[in-house]
């Protein structure tokens, strides 16, 4: 067993985990942050995507012990000061989710994507979200949400 400390959504969180404990399971079951979802456990669907030092990673393909001491942002940490992030607001505004199971992964992916590329073209948006599966929406409104999020971000005071 290993004692690790993860900085999750800005808060140091301690856990005692076996070496094989997946980061997704550590977040969900050890730390009780169940907003991160697990859809395939083999890194394809992207539902478990979290930000590791700001970069999107598959938490189902990451052992918790390997990220000891690192900064992790989950869907629970996207809002700041009780206000939903522009990406979250855009998804609600554009009907970018139905069952909501894949949504945390899309929100984290989009957050990182728009930081890299604040004004993406249609093609770039599709490319940017093409590592995440959604079975409900047919992606039409997700793509719309990403564009809307870019607009909302541009309006935010930096």
């Amino acid at each position: 067993m290993y004692d690790i400390t993860l900085i999750v959504n800005g808060v140091p969180r301690e856990a005692r985990v076996p070496a094989r404990r997946l980061l997704s399971d550590c977040l969900r079951h050890d730390l009780g942050l169940t907003g991160t979802h697990v859809g395939c456990e083999h890194g394809v669907c992207g539902a478990c995507t979290v930000l590791l030092d700001g970069e999107p990673v598959r938490s189902c393909l990451t052992f918790a012990v390997t990220v000891d001491g690192r900064e992790i942002t989950t869907v629970e940490g996207l809002a700041t000061g009780g206000r939903l992030s522009p990406v979250q607001r855009a998804f609600a505004e554009c009907h970018g989710l139905q069952c909501g199971f894949c949504t945390p992964g899309f929100l984290c992916t989009t957050t990182a994507f728009l930081r890299e590329n604040p004004a993406p073209t249609d093609e770039e948006v599709l490319e940017g979200i093409s590592g995440n599966l959604c079975r409900c929406t047919g992606y039409q409104n997700i793509a719309k949400s990403v564009h809307r999020a870019a607009e909302l971000l541009a309006e935010e005071p930096s």
């Binding site: 079951h29 169940t34 907003g35 629970e76 996207l78 809002a79 909501g100």
Partner: peptide, 21 residues
């Protein structure tokens, strides 16, 4: 606009495996 979304976009949904820790 959907009334479900507030919880689902903030990680506050409660799916089966989120219960019974």
């Amino acid at each position: 606009r959907r009334r479900e979304d507030a919880r689902l976009i903030s990680g506050q949904g409660r799916y089966l495996d989120d219960l019974g820790r």
